[in-house]
Nucleic acid binder design. Structure first.
Lengths: 112, 112
DNA sequence: GTCAAGCGCAACTGAAAGGTTTCGCAAATT
DNA sequence: AATTTGCGAAACCTTTCAGTTGCGCTTGAC
């Protein structure tokens, strides 16, 4: 019900571990819980939070429920990061220009 | 003192706004607070959290303290995202292959 | 039909988070 | 020297969160 946030979802280390776990193949809550030192219910709660922000989707198979990562949603984080990537890339370019200039200067020195 | 996490730091929307604000130029707590509907003290608390995980660095100038974004630290998020970026890029390639095949098939149809 | 397995949901608990208010300190202003 | 300004830290309050326990529902096995 509460509007969940992707950033809030990935804030918890257990949830990031769950994401990593189901990234390649869908898993059931029990199977996920076996990988941690928590109960199935705790995992279930995390899965609910991940579902609410659409980072995860579930599919019922008999009495089992498989959860899989909605990788598209991860792009949202990537998009947010993009603005800062631009900054550090531009700084790197500036550094690169600086290094190139220094190199050229150094070469001129050697030519003398 | 408490070991802070970058992911926890960016979980709060106010902190993300602060990050965006000081990304291009360092600012004082008061100047930052003017942009939000909170007190300087609240901003100060956020800055402390951002400092603890080294996302932000401060520099004293007289009685003012300027906070600037440590953009290098943002790469940590990018690195975490990298593993998932690989996944969605590989899926895109697979889709691309599929589309190409469909196109070729379509061309063959037209040749008839 | 009976029983076990696999779940989600609700209630409870302790800890942490975000915000406000108050205080004290240091640097600039007068 | 006295005052103002800019700040962090501590105390406090309220809300949220992560985890446990207990319960009830549905599905599959016997």
């Amino acid at each position: 019900m509460t509007k969940r946030d992707v950033f809030q979802a990935i804030a918890d280390p257990t949830r990031r571990a769950i994401i990593a776990l189901i990234a390649l193949q869908a898993m059931t809550p029990n199977a996920i819980a076996e990988n941690f030192h928590t109960t199935r219910q705790a995992v279930s709660k995390h899965l609910r939070i991940l579902s609410e922000c659409e980072l995860v989707q579930s599919e019922q198979k008999g009495r089992e429920i498989y959860y899989r990562l909605e990788i598209e949603k991860m792009k949202e984080i990537d998009e947010w990061l993009e603005q800062y990537r631009k900054i550090w890339e531009s700084r790197f370019e500036q550094l690169d220009v600086l290094l190139t200039e220094l190199k050229e200067q150094d070469n001129k020195e050697k030519m003398k």
